[in-house]
Every structure is written in C-alpha cells, then in structure tokens.
C-alpha cells in the first residue's frame, strides 16, 4: 500500500491543475510613512508612544521596578534606580517581574507594528510575552514604511514576532478589548537622532 505521502502527492498530480498565470504585483511595494505615521498608528492601538532623543533619560519611568532585560542589552540602558533582571530567568521569574525592556529588529509605519527577531537587544520570545508590561525601543532608522519593505529587511528563518499594540480580543460581540494573555501595556520609545 502506498504511503499517505505518496497517495496525496499522486492525487494532486492526477487532478492535473493547469499552470497559473504569472503573479502581477500591482500593489504598492513601498510607502512614504516614517516616524510620525508610525507613532500615530501605534497609538491607534492604545499603545503608549514617546518620541525621544535620549534613551537613558526616558528610562527614568522604570524607576523602582523589577525589569527583565535580554542578555545583550546596551549597557547605557541599565540606568540606576531599577532592579534589572538578567538571563537566565525561569518562567516563574519572568511571570513575576514588573516588565521587560527590549529593542526591536524592524518596525512598520503603515500598520504601527514592531517586529522582534531574537536578535540584538531582544532576547528569546518568552521575555516579551510573560511580563505584563513591555517597553520597546525603536530607532527611527528601523522603521520601514510598508509591510513589503519590512519583510524584505527580515530573515524569515529566525523566530519572528510581529506586535501591533497590546494583547487584545474581539471575541465578545466583536468589540476590541485590550489585555488578555500577552502584555497588557505596550509602551514604545521612538528614538530620533540627536
């Protein structure tokens, strides 16, 4: 008896679907939005956005809190007055923290999205999932105007997380409610060059 794999592949071949017409990408592959549009669209999803030039000064808001950071956090972010929680951390330690501070890989102006890829200043995925508060630092040069431009900047085989606002649901009468399982507060620092 043929394996399921062979049988399915044979059935597909037997269906003899004719070749498709070439894909016409007539949509916009680039956009014009930048920092301003990104900040506006992130705020639309009830994330808190600040445009800053001095990151350490802006991190004053974390004073007195217990904040998770990725292993390769930029040293200048580790300001005084905050209890910094360094990896390795257990699930329970992440869950019991006050929040997490990370950078990002790419951001998208059109949709107000932040993309994490586990690269520089981001850490593994659980870090930005279990703490109830996520403060994300986005440099102006990391903002792509459109979805197509953002995907081009990403390496697909890395573990990617696209984040657009805090966790939400539309499951009760199709109304959007913020705050379910992921961080209930998303705060974004958009960093303009000095």
């Amino acid at each position: 008896m043929a394996s399921a794999r062979e049988e399915i592949l044979n059935r597909i071949r037997d269906a003899r679907v004719p070749a498709a017409e070439p894909v016409v990408r007539g949509y916009h592959e680039t956009g014009t939005g930048g920092v301003e549009l990104f900040a506006e669209r992130v705020a639309d999803y009830r994330a808190v956005v600040h445009t800053v030039t001095d990151v350490p000064a802006a991190l004053e808001r974390l004073r007195g809190k217990r904040i998770v950071v990725p292993a390769d956090v930029p040293p200048e972010w580790l300001v005084d007055g905050v209890t910094w929680l360094h990896e390795p951390l257990t699930i329970e330690e992440l869950d019991g923290s006050d929040g997490v501070l990370t950078g990002c890989a790419v951001a998208i102006a059109d949709t107000g999205t932040i993309v994490l890829d586990g690269g520089e200043a981001q850490g593994r995925r659980a870090l930005t999932l279990l703490p109830d508060y996520h403060l994300c630092v986005v440099r102006a040069d990391q903002i792509a105007a459109s979805v197509p431009e953002a995907l081009r900047r990403l390496e697909p085989t890395r573990p990617l997380t696209f984040i657009s606002g805090p966790s939400a649901t539309s499951d009760i009468e199709l109304n959007r409610v913020e705050g379910v399982h992921g961080p209930r507060t998303l705060e974004v620092l958009v960093v303009q060059p000095q």
């Binding site: 999803y45 586990g118 659980a126 657009s164 966790s167």
Partner: peptide
C-alpha cells in the same frame, strides 16, 4: 485591523528559544 496584535513566524526548531 491594519494588523492583528500578534503574528508569530517560526521555522523548524530554534535552539534556546
């Protein structure tokens, strides 16, 4: 929505994550 709150992409297994 312009974009849903979370989209996850993974490829096979990533060590340590």
């Amino acid at each position: 929505e312009r974009m849903n709150p979370y989209t996850s992409v993974w490829t096979g297994v990533t060590e340590g994550d």
